[in-house]
Amino acid sequence: MSNEPSTAAEPLRICIAGAGAIGGTLAVRLAAAGHHVSVLARGKTLQAIRENGLTLHDLHGVTHARPAADDRPGFGVQDLILVCAKSQDMAGLLPQLQPLIGERTVVVPTNNGVPWWYFHREGGRFDGEQVRAVDPEGALARAVPLDNLIGSVLFITAEVTAPGVIRSVNPHLIVLGEPSGAMSERLLRVRAAIEAAGIEARATDRIRDKLWTKIIANISTNPLSVITHGTLEQLYGQPELREVVTQVMREALLVASSYGARVDIDPLTFVQLGEAMGPFRTSMLQDLERGRPLELAAIGDAVLELAQRYAVPMPITRAVVSLARFRGLGAQQQHAARAA
């Protein structure tokens, strides 16, 4: 086992809601730093954690942790909840978290794409409105008090290689920010706890800028990976795929700028950084291969919805998202047929 970072501050009570690749990575790192970590999981993952704990292979080496694990939120009120489920699973998960949330509990959703809280205290012309693609009835906004939320953008590539075993070969980075832009005490406290766990953590007063950086990376690669089965190295490196990626990026950058976001990475730098990540399969491609629903509502449909509000055309993006949806539904049907 590698030498582990430790936190000098008082340990926090932290619940990881969703123990997939990202949730498992965070659970291991935070548990190794001395925090009281519990995990909401289910199925084979829950069984594996109960029997053998979690094992993470990352740049720190091989780290093992045995967090408390259950499929019901019986862990008591938490200081911090990291919600690591897919966007399409939020409607089922968020209401379950209510017994864990106290007045001072900080809830940090980590899912990809446009978050349901995007317009909460946004300060623009759509302040307080819903993103209907991800929260059509406002159920997510009602499930967790919006004032308990801190936004996050994760730049972590990870993959579950077996139940309870995660592999992550790139550096970990998480950017945190209040929806209002305030540099609050609770924001800095959460940032410090995550940083002390061996994960680079940054606090920002412009979280939506970083959201758009990740949104652009996701929408330009995830749906296309479903169509092509290409890795990041192939999507960014092969000329015929790189051209499509770049066109989608340009369309998404126009949407970001319409909302006043400042994206400080140009398409060429995006491509260079993406290709350097190597033969990594996107999370959406991993879901396709397992016959799972694709995270297209938050990664694709929500961006198209935001584009419509400012009449920004996205013809290439719309076509790629539609093709990915067709491919994903077909994969789910095939998987269901095999399982029957």
Score class of each variant (00 low, 15 high):
residue 73 P to W: 14
residue 270 F to R: 10
residue 180 S to D: 15
residue 288 L to F: 12
residue 188 L to C: 13
residue 170 N to M: 14
residue 206 R to H: 15
residue 107 V to K: 06
residue 114 V to R: 01
residue 180 S to I: 15
residue 286 Q to M: 09
residue 228 T to W: 04
residue 305 E to R: 07
residue 306 L to D: 06
residue 11 P to C: 03
residue 110 T to V: 13
residue 328 G to R: 03
residue 212 W to E: 07
residue 126 F to M: 00
residue 15 C to T: 15
residue 259 Y to P: 03
residue 64 H to P: 01
residue 106 V to Q: 12
residue 32 A to P: 08
residue 324 A to T: 01
residue 34 G to L: 06
residue 270 F to K: 12
residue 251 E to N: 02
residue 109 P to C: 02
residue 162 A to C: 05
residue 302 A to G: 13
residue 256 A to P: 03
residue 248 V to H: 01
residue 180 S to W: 14
residue 331 A to S: 11
residue 206 R to V: 15
residue 12 L to M: 13
residue 74 G to H: 03
residue 94 L to P: 00
residue 198 G to F: 13
residue 163 P to A: 01
residue 135 D to L: 04
residue 188 L to G: 06
residue 177 G to Q: 13
residue 130 Q to Y: 14
residue 242 R to L: 06
residue 6 S to P: 03
residue 340 A to T: 10
residue 160 V to N: 04
residue 7 T to R: 08
residue 319 A to E: 08
residue 7 T to D: 15
residue 277 M to G: 00
residue 46 L to A: 08
residue 3 N to Y: 12
residue 108 V to W: 07
residue 331 A to V: 07
residue 201 A to Q: 09
residue 252 A to H: 12
residue 3 N to F: 11
residue 328 G to C: 10
residue 305 E to D: 04
residue 185 E to T: 14
residue 119 F to C: 02
residue 227 I to H: 03
residue 282 T to F: 01
residue 262 R to A: 11
residue 164 G to N: 05
residue 246 T to R: 15
residue 36 H to I: 08
residue 295 E to I: 00
residue 73 P to A: 06
residue 267 P to L: 03
residue 309 R to E: 05
residue 336 A to V: 08
residue 320 V to N: 00
residue 213 T to P: 00
residue 291 G to E: 09
residue 291 G to L: 04
residue 314 M to Q: 10
residue 96 Q to A: 08
residue 228 T to V: 06
residue 128 G to H: 02
residue 103 E to R: 13
residue 164 G to M: 08
residue 106 V to P: 08
residue 101 I to N: 03
residue 108 V to R: 00
residue 63 T to S: 07
residue 77 V to R: 13
residue 126 F to N: 10
residue 127 D to F: 06
residue 290 R to M: 08
residue 209 D to C: 00
residue 42 R to M: 08
residue 269 T to K: 09
residue 322 S to N: 12
residue 127 D to V: 06
residue 56 L to D: 06
residue 155 F to I: 07
residue 147 D to W: 12
residue 136 P to L: 05
residue 108 V to Y: 04
residue 143 A to N: 01
residue 110 T to M: 12
residue 96 Q to V: 05
residue 163 P to S: 03
residue 86 K to A: 02
residue 191 R to F: 02
residue 134 V to Y: 13
residue 149 L to K: 05
residue 224 L to I: 07
residue 104 R to K: 13
residue 36 H to Y: 11
residue 223 P to Q: 02
residue 242 R to H: 10
residue 62 V to Y: 00
residue 162 A to P: 06
residue 113 G to W: 11
residue 275 E to Q: 14
residue 101 I to P: 03
residue 133 A to D: 07
residue 154 L to G: 00
residue 295 E to S: 05
residue 280 F to E: 12
residue 262 R to D: 11
residue 324 A to R: 06
residue 73 P to S: 01
residue 14 I to E: 00
residue 150 I to S: 04
residue 24 G to K: 01
residue 69 A to P: 10
residue 339 A to W: 15
residue 211 L to M: 15
residue 197 A to N: 02
residue 161 T to Q: 10
residue 154 L to C: 11
residue 124 G to A: 08
residue 340 A to I: 09
residue 51 E to T: 10
residue 171 P to D: 11
residue 13 R to I: 04
residue 81 I to H: 05
residue 195 E to D: 13
residue 158 A to Q: 05
